[in-house]
């Protein structure tokens, strides 16, 4: 049985599509496939599309494209959408875990009542799904982390979180692509660049991709920092 779609309007020029209310990786991928089908069908009459967790946002010009036409196409296209082939792009990101850059590393260990080695093991063992990209350019929301590591966001966000910081909040994890304010718990640092306008595309992550973190030592971190590698 396919999950149900529901429609809602976001503005006179934008439509929201929700899938059942549950954000599973499979539902997220179905929306990605629907997005591809829409782009193929309507091309430049779509001004923007955003897949995020269990929703797909579609921006268009209502004078050029009738909303009902869009809804009819989605209903027909979705019926023929079967996620048979999962996107198999996996990004391997090296991370220097620990309190030196992970300012909340010890706090997370204490809260979860686990050792440093256990935190690194629990966080790096899983392969994460990219559910959404936003908040800041190149910021990929990855899920889901081990239940033991779930913590609410910090009550007061930091004014500046360094680019490359690896962070967790609730069931999610992410690498800060640029230095920005941030309210997540920091547990390590990735030496690779994950957002640069000079690259094509500027961020390696696409919704539906997978990400796996690999623990590295400080000397490996320093070596990679010097080499200006990108993902």
């Amino acid at each position: 049985m396919s999950a149900k779609l529901s429609f809602s309007r976001a503005s006179e020029n934008a439509l929201m599509i929700y899938i059942d209310g549950i954000a599973t990786a499979e539902n997220n991928l179905k929306l990605c496939q629907l997005e591809v089908a829409l782009r193929h069908q309507f091309k430049h009459t779509l001004l923007d599309t955003i897949v995020s967790y269990n929703s797909l946002f579609i921006e268009f010009d209502f004078i050029l494209l009738d909303e009902q036409q869009l809804i009819d196409f989605i209903n027909n296209s979705y019926l023929s959408t079967h996620v048979t082939q999962f996107n198999n792009v996996v990004h391997h990101l090296p991370v220097y875990y620990g309190p030196e850059f992970g300012l909340d590393f010890d706090y997370v260990c204490d809260s979860a009542k686990i050792t440093a080695a256990e935190l690194i093991q629990l966080h790096s063992a899983r392969r994460y799904h990219v559910y959404s990209i936003g908040f800041a350019p190149g910021f990929a929301f990855l899920g889901h982390i081990d239940d033991k590591l779930h913590l609410p966001r910090r009550s007061s966000p930091r004014a500046l979180v360094e680019a490359g910081s690896l962070a967790i909040a609730e069931s999610q994890t992410a690498v800060y692509p640029t230095t920005t304010p941030g309210g997540w718990h920091l547990i390590g640092r990735c030496p690779l660049t994950t957002f640069n306008l000079k690259n094509q595309p500027p961020t390696p992550f696409k919704i539906g991709d997978s990400v796996q973190f690999t623990p590295i030592s400080k000397s490996e971190y320093q070596h990679l920092m010097g080499s200006q590698c990108r993902v």
């Binding site: 976001a10 503005s11 020029n13 934008a14 929201m16 954000a23 923007d48 599309t49 955003i50 995020s52 967790y53 269990n54 929703s55 797909l56 946002f57 921006e59 959404s132 936003g134 908040f135 929301f141």
Partner: peptide, 9 residues
């Protein structure tokens, strides 16, 4: 869940 935001939302 975080979702796409329209101009004027």
């Amino acid at each position: 869940y975080s979702e796409g935001i329209a101009l004027g939302a």
